[in-house]
Computed example of a mutant assay.
Amino acid sequence: MGAVTEIFGINVGDAGLGALLTLVILLILTGKLVPRRTHEDVITDRDNWRQAYLESEKARKVEHEQTGELLEMARLGGHILTALPHPGQADEEEVSRGDRMDQAPRTRM
């Protein structure tokens, strides 16, 4: 004879119809036994979330690559701006007061 198993402390071999019904109700209440439709809904929901996650990761990867390109362009722009001469100064010589672009006389207050 096979081994007698116990579920929730009830010997399955000695269980009658009432005990089996009680066992099924207990399994449903504890969440160990769910209807097929509920299980299929959970599986479908899981698959939908997985697909949404994968699409989100693709978009994040594209965004990350574009951000890298934009940062490189910003660095290049920064280097170009710092390489330009400052207003009022020549490359290596200092501009005298008479060589200023705005020749309007200054008024003192």
Rank of each mutant, 00 (worst) to 15 (best):
Gly77Gln: 14
Arg46Met: 12
Thr44Val: 00
Val42Ser: 15
Glu72Phe: 03
Val42Cys: 14
Gly77Ile: 02
Leu54His: 04
Glu65Cys: 02
Arg50Phe: 06
Thr44Ala: 13
Leu71Met: 01
Asp45Ser: 15
Ser56Val: 01
His79Ile: 10
Glu72Val: 12
Val42Arg: 15
His64Lys: 09
Thr67Asn: 10
Glu57His: 05
Tyr53Phe: 11
His79Ser: 11
Gly68Asn: 01
Met73Thr: 12
Tyr53Met: 10
Leu76Asp: 11
Glu57Phe: 03
Asp45Trp: 11
Val62Tyr: 12
Lys61Thr: 08
Trp49Ser: 10
Gly77Phe: 06
Glu55Tyr: 07
Leu76Ser: 05
Lys58Glu: 14
Arg50Met: 02
Leu81Lys: 14
Thr44Pro: 01
Arg50Asn: 01
Asp45Ile: 03
Gln51Thr: 09
His64Leu: 07
Glu63Leu: 08
Leu76Trp: 00
Ala59Ser: 05
Ile43Ser: 06
Met73Pro: 00
Asp47Cys: 07
Glu69Thr: 12
Gly78Ile: 06
His64Gln: 11
Val42Trp: 15
Asp41Ser: 15
Arg46Ala: 12
Gly68Arg: 01
Ala52Leu: 04
Ala74Glu: 09
Arg46Val: 11
Ile43Met: 09
Glu69Pro: 01
Ser56Glu: 04
Ala52His: 07
Thr44Ile: 00
Ile43Phe: 06
Arg60Glu: 13
Tyr53Asp: 09
His79Asn: 14
Glu72Gln: 09
Glu65Gly: 00
Trp49Leu: 13
Asp47Trp: 06
His79Cys: 09
Lys58Ala: 07
Leu70Val: 07
Lys61Arg: 15
Lys58Asp: 14
Gln66Asn: 11
Ala59Thr: 04
Leu71His: 01
Val42Asn: 15
Glu65Val: 06
Ser56Pro: 00
Lys58Val: 08
Ile80Val: 09
Ala59Met: 07
Gly78Trp: 03
Gln66Trp: 05
Gly77Cys: 13
Glu72Met: 02
